[in-house]
Amino acid sequence: MSKHLQTPETGQDLGGALQKPIQRRSFLLYTGATVAATGLLLAGCDDDDDNGTTTTVNLGSGDVGVLNYAYALEQLEAAFYAQVVATPYSGITADERTGLTAIAKHEAIHRDFFKAAITSVAASQIIPGLTPDFSKVNFADRNSVLTTAKTFEDLGVAAYNGAGALIKDNTYLLLAGKIVSVEARHAGYIRDLLSNGDFAGSDVVNASGLDRALSVADVLAAAQPFIKEKISGDNVGK
């Protein structure tokens, strides 16, 4: 296991990975760090250019595809909150710090859990560690951080809600259910921090009292700006 993935609390890897030359090095470290990488469906691996060529990560198909899909989103969330905890925004209260630190742990646990679970059932198909791009987030600014957090949490909820029916194995379905409600609790908390009472705003909960459920394609389109690698989820659940 790459040490990169074991020290999320520091956020060091992620900060460094924001710089382009390091992006490629990270990628090589990730691929070199795991034998499982042999089975990765990576397009452009043999492209040695650093001039903007993007690595494509294919999430795969079937239930493993859904697990990789969740793993990708949890990597993104875990990396984000690790940075939030490492460099708290200006004016953060003790209570907010406690709450956000707890969320950072939850997301890191989700990420590590998917990594372990996928490795145990389909080691050859697990996606690598992704390189987040938080260049548009101002980690010193409360509003920027919490607005990004809101985006991630609401997106995570909608992603799991939309993916439930794609899952074939009821064991995985239950696991996804155990996680999605925690993401929804996060979403409610974060939204209340931004505007008390907005825990289930009309932008996410419709007139029928239903939370959003988004397709894999829609979720990846929303998440893609925050991930350096190109994520392909065309066969998730198929």
């Binding site: 809600n161 439930g164 259910g177 999605v180 929804a184 409610g188 009292g209 939370d211 459920a213």
Partner: peptide, 8 residues
């Protein structure tokens, strides 16, 4: 599931 997350 869409109700479930609203309850959460």
């Amino acid at each position: 599931l869409q109700i479930h997350s609203v309850e959460a």
